[in-house]
Write a protein that binds this DNA or RNA. Structure first.
Lengths: 346, 346
DNA sequence: TTGTAGGCGTTATCAG
DNA sequence: CTGATAACGCCTACAA
């Protein structure tokens, strides 16, 4: 079942030169319609398929780029990848998607492995450590673009949502509906490297939360900022539970991202706190979680499609003569108000 | 930023023949350690990277296979893809993942497009129409394997969970916990091609439901078999609502797959029916939905990893001299009991 | 309009 | 152990 039929085979069968076959197969103008059709028929019969390798060797490139996606996050990145694919396709590029696990070094290894893959550049989604990724890219000599990286320092064009501005909107919404004792829930990593820990965007969101509260004349209570395991299938959020035991006044919870909400909501349900009447809950991302939980979640929608499109554009530009600037490219989020927040009835 | 440094460049810089460089770069035995190290150093300095295309041309293949995954289903397929990747890697194959949308013909187009990609075979996940897929594969001359296809007729080795047996387990569980008025919820497609409609596996699950009830001496009430939109973010399930208005005796709901459960649960919550005390709810797949909803869902877990592994094995076998039989390969599911089902308290 | 020949970067073969 | 050289399959000047 190997690659068998070549241009030469077809040319022999058709009794013409190899070049004529090549021209007939492509849409070359310098071929009489008659011979072209004849050759195409013969090629068809012989089952001729052009060799991607030979073509790429000749043309100097495959016109393919890679997107590395996290393989453990249930596909929130799919709209991003989709936009990358669309954009790349419009420029005549194929997109290869590589799911990669979150283990220490897995990302760098995956990129190093790309040296055996016909790809000319890489878009990395959700980067914990840009430095090592950059090194890996340098090693195999392809350009990279990062999406939603959590690094504080950047070595790539780096695309993200406007985390600070978006989180401000969420916090302002909570204040606007009359909440003042607002808990901020951050992720804690269960041992190992800090994938989420002090990530840049969690920092940005927390900063927004603090700033909004202060602007609204609400003093920051550090006890209301809690860290919890990131395990959306857990039966509850013990840290929140303990807090509620001590602080009966809590009237809202702002989750650093949507995936922290399921356990928060379960904890509240267990304790008989009604959402949103007793406690309003909001998240960030507008990831699938937001519509699956009950009540559905108020959140900041990340402009996934726009981010993906931009990533592809920047990467393609990196392949050109004039690479783009290494900086952050931020895109505004959109506040989506759903059933989990509402004006305080009291 | 193009491919620049070649073997020739390195050989000139090192003052040796091109063949020696080639040997030094690979792990060829016929090279003195001294020259090998020297050449590698020089290659490093020059930034030499082997050309994937040239190598593939020479060797006659990339040893890569493709996996086509649905790009609109939130990544339930990731464990499948992961298993494919592991298995293929063990056999020295790269895996290229291609997310493809569900539009009519998109799948066939995507496969046709693979003729520009260095791939030797394709695993297609979630196939609505095997015939067109098979035609596309034939056109570009590569073998295929289907996972979780919903076709009634098959043209490929076709891998799936044991839908009938698994659904029997779920239904038997519902009966065992004392439920007898069990609703079966099927998906309805909102216009257009029948991606879900009469899919093979929904049929199988329904058949299991019917058989189990009959075996248990429960007569089938056709009114309890309902069709609903497949929209997990909808605020409720009107068809179930109407049914509950008429039939107060309903004590369980079996969703044809997990993603139908969120709306069912929302409908029940709206109507004040408690889950699982009043009504038990079960699904099928053990997809992410099952753990995100509250209460978490009893369901049949599909053996995703095993399915992916088998798919890769069958595809690699298709590339060999002795292709596998074109038949269904089924793997048993596992009943996962969670909070949404429990013995009837009454 | 068609055929010939050369080269893309590797690897394998065969001499030295 | 090393060096020249011939493919791999395609594309494209250039010549006919």
């Amino acid at each position: 079942m190997t690659q068998r039929v070549t241009l030469t085979d077809v040319s022999r069968a058709a009794g013409v030169g190899i070049a004529t076959v090549s021209r007939a197969m492509g849409d070359h103008p310098d071929v009489s319609t008659a011979t072209r059709d004849r050759i195409r028929t013969i090629a068809q019969e012989l089952g001729y398929r052009p060799s991607v390798a030979a073509r790429a060797l000749r043309r100097g490139g495959f016109h393919a780029i890679s997107v590395i996606v996290p393989d453990n996050q249930w596909g929130w990145w799919e709209p991003v990848a989709h936009a990358c694919i669309e954009t790349a396709a419009a420029a005549g590029y194929q997109v290869l998607v590589h799911p990669v696990g979150g283990a220490e070094g897995a990302l760098a290894d995956a990129i190093t492995g790309l040296s055996n893959v016909p790809t000319e550049g890489v878009i990395v989604i959700s980067v914990p450590d840009q430095k090592s990724v950059r090194d890996a890219c340098d090693r195999i000599g392809i350009p990279g673009v990062a999406i939603d990286d959590s690094s504080v320092d950047i070595y790539f064009p780096s695309i993200s949502a406007a985390n600070y501005a978006g989180a401000r909107e969420v916090a302002e919404h909570l204040v606007a509906i009359g909440r003042s004792r607002i808990v901020f829930v951050r992720p804690r990593l269960s041992g190992g490297a800090s994938v989420w820990g002090d990530s840049f965007y969690v920092q940005e969101r927390e900063k927004a939360y603090r700033d909004v509260l202060v602007s609204a004349g609400i003093s920051i209570d550090e006890h209301l900022i809690i860290d919890t395991e990131f395990d959306e299938s857990a039966s509850g959020c013990p840290e929140l539970g303990e807090l509620l035991d001590r602080e009966s006044s809590v009237d809202a919870v702002f989750c650093a991202f949507d995936q922290l909400a399921p356990t928060v909501l379960r904890e509240l349900a267990t304790r008989g706190r009604r959402v949103p009447d007793d406690i309003a809950v909001a998240g960030f991302d507008d990831e699938r979680t937001a519509v699956l939980v009950t009540p559905q979640l108020t959140t900041a929608r990340q402009p996934y499609a726009q981010m993906g499109r931009t990533a592809a554009e920047l990467l393609l530009q990196s392949l050109s003569e004039t690479p783009p600037a290494i900086q952050r490219y931020e895109f505004p989020t959109q506040l989506i108000v759903r059933a989990s927040t509402r004006t305080h009835p009291s």
